[in-house]
């Protein structure tokens, strides 16, 4: 059974919306997609093709015009989803310190929530940042706190929207490690990223989207030998897969590739 099932998805923004266009914009037009439990699926595509919109639709933050999205057979509103937004959007509440930001995800008594939050921070090896506020944290640590918050919520599905955005090499390394750990724990995740190599390293398959209205240009299984680790970043197998994706994206930029389905 598929964990996530999207069928006939239509999403249109009216004129003058975020895209600041005079006409309405159709992001998805009868889009279909599915993923299984325990899969890490990467989504790549040109800027503005609808990757973040897809994440928001699956998370239940936005509503489709028509079509269905089901997770474990339920609607997004009925499902616990671990959402890690884009770093540039302000992923943590600035008035809460790290442990309070994580505890925010939990319902119930404040003491229990904070104890759970401390546990989540310790798992990621960043418990010493518990009392720090977001303005005191680097981008990578903020992402780790955001991941800990999503994990504590106990979701069946993780949604990562550009987790490596604006991060330097060291901070990207921290986040990549955290996601590899989640992968080892058989988490189910959708990962939107412009960082193709990280997406290939972390994911079981990569979905390449076209420009709007977004369709699937390519669905590429990623078969890397052995258990995934940071060292594989420089492996020939990873580079071959990355090369195929890069060519597909370049083909779209040259308008050679329109859609697979």
């Amino acid at each position: 059974m598929n964990l996530v099932s999207i069928d006939g998805l239509v999403k249109t923004y009216p004129a003058g919306n975020a895209n600041r266009t005079d006409a309405s914009v159709t992001v998805f037009d009868r889009f279909a997609f599915s993923m299984k439990k325990g899969e890490f699926v990467g989504i790549v595509g040109p800027n503005g093709c609808g990757k973040t919109t897809l994440v928001k639709l699956i998370a239940g933050i936005e509503q489709p015009n028509s079509g269905s999205i089901s997770i474990f057979g339920k609607s997004p509103e009925e499902t616990r989803i671990g959402y890690v937004p884009q770093h540039t959007g302000g992923i943590l509440y600035p008035w809460l310190n790290a442990v309070e930001n994580i505890a925010f995800a939990m319902a119930g008594h404040e003491t229990e929530a904070k104890a759970g939050a401390m546990g989540a921070l310790s798992e990621l090896g960043i418990s010493h940042y518990a009392d720090s506020f977001p303005y005191q944290l680097s981008g990578g640590i903020k992402q780790l706190v955001s991941i800990a918050r999503a994990k504590l919520f106990g979701p069946g599905l993780f949604l990562f929207d550009e987790p490596f955005n604006s991060l330097d090499y060291h901070n990207s390394f921290l986040v990549e490690n955290a996601l590899l750990k989640l992968r080892k724990e058989n988490a189910t995740a959708l990962l939107v990223s412009h960082d193709i190599q990280s997406a290939v390293l972390l994911c079981d398959k990569i979905l390449v989207l076209t420009k709007k209205p977004a369709r699937i240009a390519m669905l590429l299984p990623v078969n890397l030998p052995g258990e995934r680790s940071i060292d594989m970043r420089f492996s020939p197998e990873l580079n071959i897969v990355s090369g195929k994706i890069f060519n597909a994206l370049q083909g779209m930029a040259d308008d050679r590739i329109v859609a697979l389905a």
Partner: peptide, 22 residues
Amino acid sequence: KETSLAIAIVFKKSNLDILFKV
């Protein structure tokens, strides 16, 4: 901020929680 609201929505916070805590 949109992201602040989105986080609260995904973590199933009530409208009162969203008003007072966000």
